[in-house]
């Protein structure tokens, strides 16, 4: 087994939540309930993340996109999963009790198609003590304005202003990289009362059927993740860290302790592992151990001040 003990040498505080180390999962890239079915109780003994972020919950149940949903890239993946989930009521009845039993704090990721929907979701979790923090997935269109909520600073600010008074729990806004200026959106979210930001979500991408030349993905377009987005993530994290004072959860293509360390140097407090967990379910634990190894060689450098010409 991987020597995990050293990961315990990296205690991290995030929005008042005490974590064993700074490695969590990206929403939608690890289903702890499914993993328990595949691996049994051994999963809890080696749980790879310091906090668990659940897959996006919407108000109503969603089936998700028609298959095929996956396209492999050199060093990455396009997914058009389409946010399948049981909906708020199903999540509260079936998923929340099981996720509350995990050995780590729970962060619930929510998304709505109107500000009212997001407000209803936030209100529903505000009083649940099983929930340590809420993450707002703003990578979807507001059906009232047609704008991607997180692509526009004003839209984002209005959303955060609306839901901020509804909960005392930490509110993390998950930024979309598909915005003209993610730094401006980040600043707007901070001004509107967000407690933390997470980035990057997947980058829009598309693939054609190798034989017919027709669309490959059932959802036509999807989101690119994995090693191939790592450089984009690093640049966006550095930009956003330069614009806000909020703690950041950084992700995008993290495969090794070295990649996590880069994002921490760029200004992140936590690092999330997504696609790499598909290659190895215990990747989170391995990356935490590798990071601890790097820290033994050299202490935490703190965020680096990059010099721009």
């Amino acid at each position: 087994m991987t020597p995990l003990a050293s990961a315990a040498d990296l205690p991290t505080s995030f929005c008042g939540i005490e974590l064993a180390h700074p490695i969590v999962n990206g929403s939608g890239t690890f289903d702890a309930i499914a993993a328990r079915r595949a691996f049994g109780p051994a999963l809890e003994e080696t749980f790879p993340f310091a906090a668990f972020v659940s897959k996006t919950v919407t108000l109503m149940p969603r089936q998700g996109n028609p298959p095929p949903r996956l396209w492999e890239l050199p060093g990455g993946l396009i997914n058009s999963i389409g946010l399948p989930n049981k909906g708020l009521a199903g999540y509260l009845t079936h998923d929340l009790p099981e996720l509350a039993a995990l050995p780590v704090p729970l962060i619930v990721n929510v998304m709505g198609f109107t500000r009212d929907e997001v407000a209803e979701l936030v209100r529903a979790f505000a009083e649940r003590e099983e929930v340590a923090a809420l993450e707002l997935n703003v990578s979807c269109p507001n059906v009232e304005t047609g704008l991607i909520m997180g692509a526009d600073p004003t839209e984002t600010a209005r959303l955060v202003e609306r839901v901020r008074p509804l909960t005392t729990k930490p509110l993390i806004v998950k930024l979309t990289p598909n915005a003209t200026d993610p730094g401006a959106v980040a600043a707007a979210a901070e001004a509107a009362g967000a407690d933390a930001l997470s980035l990057i979500n997947t980058i829009r991408g598309m693939a054609l059927h190798p034989r017919t030349g027709d669309q490959w993905l059932g959802g036509v377009t999807g989101g690119v993740s994995g090693a191939t987005v790592r450089a984009v993530a690093l640049a966006q994290v550095a930009d956003v860290a330069g614009r806000v004072r909020l703690p950041l959860v950084a992700m995008g293509g993290v495969q090794r302790g070295r990649d996590a360390d880069d994002l921490l140097r760029a200004g992140a407090t936590l690092v999330a592992v997504g696609t790499e967990s598909f290659r190895d379910p215990l990747a989170g634990a391995r990356i935490a151990a590798e990071l601890a190894g790097l820290r033994q060689e050299a202490p935490a450098p703190g965020a680096v001040a990059f010099h721009r010409p």
Partner: peptide, 27 residues
């Protein structure tokens, strides 16, 4: 058979349509 990324229910990529909706084939 279906295209799989993870094999343990993490990605929701491998669904096939059944009479009760999509199921993850790996799970």
């Amino acid at each position: 058979e279906s295209g799989m990324a993870c094999g343990f229910g993490a990605c929701f990529g491998c669904v096939v349509p059944t009479r009760d909706g999509y199921v993850r084939l790996c799970l």
